[in-house]
Amino acid sequence: MHPVELTERQTEVLSLLAQGLDLPQIARQLQFSVYTARSHLRDLLPRLKAANGTHAVAIAIGLGILPSDVATKSSTLIGVSHVR
Rank of each mutant, 00 (worst) to 15 (best):
I65K: 05
S81K: 09
R28M: 06
V83H: 14
I26K: 15
V34Y: 08
L16P: 13
L66N: 01
T72I: 08
V57G: 00
Q29E: 07
A60I: 05
L23D: 10
R9T: 06
V34R: 01
R84F: 04
I78K: 12
L21V: 13
R28V: 07
I61A: 05
A56Q: 03
T7S: 15
Q25H: 08
A50N: 01
V13Q: 04
L77H: 08
V83E: 09
L44G: 01
V13M: 13
D69S: 14
R42H: 13
L63M: 10
A71S: 14
S81W: 06
L23C: 06
I61Y: 00
I26M: 14
L16I: 12
P3S: 13
A27H: 02
L41N: 06
L16Y: 15
S39H: 07
P46Q: 02
S75K: 10
P24S: 09
D69H: 14
G79F: 04
G64N: 11
V57W: 02
L63S: 02
L14K: 03
L16M: 15
V34S: 00
P67N: 13
D22L: 04
L14T: 02
G79P: 09
S75L: 10
G64D: 03
Y35I: 13
L16W: 10
P46M: 07
T72N: 08
V13K: 04
P3L: 11
T54H: 14
H82W: 08
T36G: 05
V80M: 10
Y35G: 08
K49H: 11
S75T: 13
A37W: 10
Q31G: 08
E12C: 10
V4T: 11
